[in-house]
């Protein structure tokens, strides 16, 4: 396999930190595949994912026979698949469009089976070692400056977390802050990433910049370390505040563990909770209270309905803000103050 062949195959977005010119060979010991190992695969059949997200930010249509380079990874997506970071030498599954290959364990009834990939080997670099996303992470401890941060969590996938994080990032930017917009957990995808970039945030990064193609089933110390790396990188970029989205719902494995950890809670000056209706708001606020968290405000699909918002405010005593309000620099600015941005921080 020549450099040219590696460079012309379809590399995925979640491996964007790896320069394809580094790929020089293959190891066929697929049973040894570990999370983050780059897998060269050949598309067998097209299933749920008809396209692969490229590092350039463009989706590329997949055809049977295409060669693709994807990191081995797990997936947790109630709307799509649950899968693990294992490679079956005969056939494996494309678990995410942003780039994640593994074995599907279960899938949502409403979607097609995954796109099938024939794994050809683990891609090696010039030194003969397997290329792994972990080795291309941002340097740790770029800055020791503590950065005020607002954490966005929600009831589930598609509850409105990313919409809220994007709107708040935009509102804070309009209020004059340099915003670090971060996605702390989940599976690599350019959709959310690009929305955060478009919000005007000064710095955008996700867990793949911390070396993880996906955070599902990763050791918690690695996930927490990834958050610290992203916050430190934001501080190094001169950001005044970070907006940090944590994926999925508050019952999801890593999200629940993060929120239950007082040391993780202490990294955030405030929490915003996205949910779909008033009952979800009431339940979520109660669950978070057990972890010692009181959200600053509620948002998400709930906020589209004034009636649902009124019910939620009555049931929880927490205010509801719409996407448009989060985009308002005055509202966003007040949340920043509530989360601990002070004149002292700005002068630092």
């Amino acid at each position: 396999m020549t450099h040219l062949a590696f460079s012309t195959m379809k590399w995925c977005f979640s491996a964007r930190r790896i320069d394809p010119v580094l790929a020089t060979g293959l190891k066929e010991d697929l049973a040894q595949a570990a999370p983050g190992d780059m897998i060269l695969g050949r598309v067998i059949s097209i299933g749920n994912h008809t396209r692969i997200q490229l590092p350039s930010g463009r989706p590329a249509t997949l055809y049977p026979g295409d060669l693709v380079a994807l990191p081995c990874g797990a997936r947790y997506a109630p709307d799509q698949f649950e899968g693990v970071a294992e490679i079956d030498p005969k056939s494996c599954d494309m678990l995410a469009g942003g780039g994640c290959v593994g074995l599907m364990r279960q899938r949502n009834e409403r979607i097609k089976p995954p796109t099938q990939i024939q794994p050809l080997g683990r891609i090696t670099g010039p030194d003969g070692r397997v290329l792994n996303t972990r080795d291309f992470a941002l340097l740790e401890r770029l800055s020791t400056r503590s950065l005020p941060a607002i954490c966005v969590i929600g009831t589930s996938m598609n509850s409105g977390k990313t919409t809220a994080a994007v709107a708040l990032s935009h509102g804070l930017t309009r209020a004059g802050y340099r915003v670090g917009a971060l996605k702390a957990t989940g599976t690599g995808s350019f959709g959310d990433f690009n929305k955060l970039v478009d919000s005007g945030a000064a710095y955008v990064a996700d867990f793949s910049d911390a070396g993880m193609a996906t955070t599902y089933l990763e050791p918690m110390e690695r996930v927490i370390g990834g958050i610290d790396v992203l916050l430190a990188a934001s501080a190094s970029q001169g950001c005044d505040i970070a907006v940090v989205e944590i994926a999925d719902g508050i019952f999801q494995r890593e999200t629940a563990a993060l929120l239950a950890d007082p040391a993780v809670q202490a990294r955030f000056g405030g929490f915003i909770f996205a949910c779909g209706d008033a009952v979800a708001a009431a339940g979520g606020v109660l669950c978070m209270a057990e972890m010692g968290i009181r959200p600053m405000m509620l948002t998400g699909m709930l906020s589209c309905s004034p009636i649902a918002a009124a019910e939620a405010e009555h049931a929880t005593g927490v205010s509801v803000l719409t996407k448009r309000q989060l985009e308002d620099p005055a509202e966003a600015n007040a949340l920043a103050a509530q989360a601990g941005v002070t004149e002292l921080d700005r002068a630092a």
């Binding site: 308002d328 005055a330 002070t342």
Partner: peptide, 14 residues
């Protein structure tokens, strides 16, 4: 419209 009292209150220290 905007709840300026609430917003200003949260910024008062700054």
């Amino acid at each position: 419209g905007l709840n300026a009292a609430s917003l200003a209150k949260r910024q008062l220290r700054n």
